[in-house]
Design a protein around this nucleic acid. Structure first.
Lengths: 250, 250
DNA sequence: CGGTAGATTGAGAGTCCTCAAGCTCTGTGG
DNA sequence: CCACAGAGCTTGAGGACTCTCAATCTACCG
């Protein structure tokens, strides 16, 4: 029996539940202990709560241990753009450390469990264990490639291509970290989330989703997403997932 | 007289011309020598040439020493999205090191001069000098924030807002690294570049640019950009530049 | 003096947006 | 047990922003 704290995280990083999948790079025992010492606390947040508020500097870094979240930016009249979705294993808050005030918010999309790290300990981590620094750069670069992918969608794909892309992409990411069961994943995203991620209106997002559904490409039912025709979706989206290397998990 | 090699870069990093502006973090002499040793060579590429081809793994990393470049992705039918523009001082190729094949291309927009680094020496750099590793993460995070900003534009700003945003943003970035003279910057971007960066068609980009010009907000003339009314542009774009910290330069 | 790249403009079409209304489902309270 | 409110989903209709097609114009070059 693995000891669990009241946020749903294991008390010890050496028994981190995420590491049971093969999505993550295996870490040495010592390194896990170092991360555990670096970890300030763990916490739980309800869906809809802000993990990092859009215009405030955060003094903390996070690893998303359970649940979904998203990064976003808004214009002053309220228009919102979701930059990318975050799933368990993703690191949160790196840009805050570096970018000069060019802020974005991070919101919990479902109830989430988080590992919390102090932001001002980051440089020490690089110094103490350069390998972890290298891994952080990796995570930053990989997140950027997610945003790149979204920018290509929003800039150059049509509505139906964008939605097809999003469905396949989210499914693959969830599957990757062990969230797919019986050919489906939990799908807590509402249509406003999808619209804001794809740069579409809510109404048009709805019509496009329905259109794909009627074409027999996917089903969203009881909060779960089934890809009936993943190849079909990939074809529409002009997006073909490649095998992925294992990802560092901090 | 600073010795210059045939690519236009100084032969010694200790005399790097870029460091004469205050845009960059001052580096210790030893660190500059380390970077110089890490530098494999320098090179020059003509406008339009590929610095990194879109679907090929590159074995090199670069610092853009002079000129403009851009990162882009394309769909199989040729639609192209420019992800962000690169200016002198920007580091090129980090994502290639980490992202799993999720590739993008990097093209020289003007004639460029580049410092070239071997990609497989990167990890050694983290190990030898964690501070440089930290700086690389910084650069990665900052580039991501550029892409974030573009994604907000393309997803949620109207055409005129996007163009206003682009003009201000490019101007500020160029100014920041010492490229503004007499209230203008060299403007080598053609309308296709702007269209591909903003997710617009060439024709509509042209009409929008003209509209802003007729409103007296900017002038593009003889390959130079003048912001006649930067505040007006910022207002339209709902974008206000904040003071920036100094950036690492590697 | 053609030829090419880039900028410009007009016209018509189409994707996507806004407005509006109705529907389903869930939770709450009388 | 049922009315009611709220969140989210769905659909129709009209309008607007942006796209494609096409043609013209300028600048530059061999």
């Amino acid at each position: 029996m693995i000891p669990i704290d009241d946020s749903g995280c294991p008390t010890s990083c050496t028994r981190c539940g995420l590491r049971e999948t093969d999505a993550f790079l295996p870490f040495e025992h010592d390194r896990l202990l170092y991360i555990q010492a670096f970890r300030e606390t763990t916490m739980r947040l309800a869906a809809g709560r802000q993990i990092i508020a859009e215009h405030k500097a955060s003094t903390r870094l996070f690893t998303l241990y359970r649940g979904w979240a998203f990064r976003y930016k808004t214009l002053s009249d309220g228009r919102r753009q979701i930059l990318n979705f975050l799933v368990q294993g993703d690191f949160i808050g790196l840009q805050e450390e570096f970018a000069d005030g060019a802020t974005h918010g991070v919101e919990a999309l479902t109830d989430v469990s988080l590992c919390v790290f102090p932001r001002d300990g980051l440089w020490e981590m690089y110094r103490d264990d350069p390998r972890l620094g290298y891994d952080l750069t990796w995570l930053a670069a990989r997140e950027e490639s997610l945003v790149d992918e979204n920018l290509l969608s929003v800039g150059r794909r049509t509505a139906i291509e964008r939605v097809a892309m999003l469905l396949v992409h989210l499914y693959r990411r969830a599957e990757r970290v062990g969230l797919a069961h019986d050919g489906s994943i939990a799908f807590p995203f509402n249509q406003q989330h999808i619209a804001d991620a794809l740069g579409l209106s809510l109404v048009h997002t709805n019509k496009t989703l329905r259109r794909l559904g009627r074409m027999g490409l996917h089903i969203i039912e009881d909060g779960r997403l089934y890809l009936q025709d993943p190849r079909g979706l990939e074809g529409i989206a002009d997006y073909y997932e490649r095998p992925r290397r294992q990802t560092p998990l901090i």
